Each structure stands twice: as structure tokens, then as C-alpha cells.
Simulated assay, not measured.
Amino acid sequence: MKWLQAWRGHLPAHKYAINAQLLGDDAELAWSNLGYWQADTPPYPAACRALADHLAQAVGLNSNDRLLDLGCGQGASLLHWQARYQVRQLSAVELQPACVAKIQRCAALQADVRCGSFLNLKRIFPQPAFDAALCIDAAYHCNLNSFLLSAHSVLAANGRLGFHYLMLSENYLNLNALQKLRYQALLKAADVNLQDLLQPAALRQCLEKFQFTDIQIQDISAQVFAGFAAYEAGHLKSNAKGLDQFKIQVTAKLCRALYEEGIVRYVQIAARKAG
């Protein structure tokens, strides 16, 4: 039993846990997304902030907003919303208990952070009171219908929703059965169900079905997939080892493959709940 306990001690605390220190973020409340990478290579935290800002700007986040952060991870985004956007009210949900406990101990943060799934928002927040809800680099782990149903329930009239998702290109129709099985296996390793992904027209129709308007869908695969893969190749800390390193390397290889093959695209989605 001792060797089993020792082995478990090297496993990530949660399937979504990322060792941000290996990527270059040593902060107590660290970032843990794929980042938005420009031509020059910024530090990892700067690329993560850029991905958050790109999403926030798409929904017009401002200081009058009551904001709900869906899947806030280790909490860096919460500090960012508070410091840069000075939102009127800040709430969040996160699935990882260890992250929630760490966030709640941060004296500098004024936020209502709950431990739970963003697919059960109506139970956590019974009233539709939020002006904006943002989900950075996480919604594609779940079924889009379930995500939209949950998010719609907590947004106030004319509330805005911003999130990242994966979208199938039109070329997906040209794949044979074996090729589709390959993508199914690749995505399953990243906890993504290929059957949940849609092509552009169907993706827009799904949003409209849940009474979202002003829909914006932007392909940012180059900035995210290609950018993270390039950063990992040249900047992963040389002393990295073990399962944490392996997880990051596999993620980077998947990002590179998806970008180069062009079948699965990384998209930013912004929409407004009909009043």
C-alpha cells in the first residue's frame, strides 16, 4: 500500500489540474489556460491574460457588470477581473475543491466562489442575476446544449455570454470512418467528446435555439493551438519531469496536430441573451 500511496502522490489532484509553474507562472493564484499568443512570444501569464481580455472585450465587460466566471481554475482570472475591469460584483464556480479552497484564502480577492459544476448553475445561483458570464478555455469539455442551458438560466435579460469551444470545419465531412475514429480517440484523451462538436452553421443554430442573439464566432486556432504548441516546444522548464510534464507535452502535441490538420478549430464565442 505504501508504494500505491507514493504513486498517487505524484498524480495530479484533478483531471483538469495543470502545474502552471512548469509553464512559467509561479503566482499563488496562477493562470491555467492555453493562452492567446501574438507574433512575439510573451511570458505564459501574459498570454493567458490576453486570452481572458480577448474574451472580455468581445462581450464588452465593464465596471457596471455583475460577472460570473465559469471554471475559474486557480483564480488568476478573478484577480484580473477585479483589478483591470473593477466589476461591480464578482462570482465564480470551479470544480476543483483544492483550487476553491486556495482562492477563498486570498485576502486580496473579493469574490463569491462556489465549488461545483458550471452545468448546475441554476442550483448554485437560483436567480438569473448576472450581466455577464465568461468561461475561459473550458466549455468544450462538456456538451454544448447542457452548457448553454445552464448559462442561460443565470443570465439577466440582455446578459452576455463569452466562452471558448471547439468547432468542426467543413472538411470534417470528407473524412472516412477510420479518420473520424482517430479524431474521436485524440479528443477523448483531452476529455472532449467528438460527438459534441458542431460545424459553423449548426453551432450558430444551437445558440439561437437557446435564445441567444448578437452571436459572434471567431476562429482563433492560430493564436491558441499553434501558439501554445510553439511556446511549449521552446519554453517548458528544462527541469520539468513526471506526469505534470507529460500532460503538458501531450496537450501541446495535440494542439499542434489539430492546428496543422485544420479539422478541429478553436473558436471564441460571444452572444447576448434575448431580453
Rank of each mutant, 00 (worst) to 15 (best):
K188P: 03
L144S: 05
A222S: 07
L144I: 10
D214E: 12
L173Y: 00
H235M: 07
D244T: 04
N145V: 05
L236W: 02
H141A: 10
Y183H: 08
F210N: 15
E232Y: 14
A202L: 14
A230P: 14
G242I: 11
G162S: 13
H235Q: 10
L149C: 06
L207N: 05
L254F: 06
L178M: 07
R204T: 12
C142V: 07
S238G: 11
K180L: 01
I263V: 15
G227M: 13
V224D: 08
L173T: 02
S169K: 07
N193I: 04
I248Q: 09
A156I: 04
H164P: 05
Q179Y: 03
L175G: 02
V154F: 11
Y266L: 05
I217M: 10
D244N: 14
E208K: 12
N143S: 07
Y231V: 09
D219V: 07
A240S: 15
G159K: 03
L203M: 10
F225H: 15
G234K: 11
N158L: 02
R256Q: 08
A151R: 01
N171S: 14
R182L: 01
V250D: 06
I248R: 12
L173F: 01
I269V: 11
I217D: 10
T213S: 03
G159E: 08
L155Y: 15
F163I: 07
A230Q: 15
H235G: 07
F228D: 04
Q184P: 05
V264S: 01
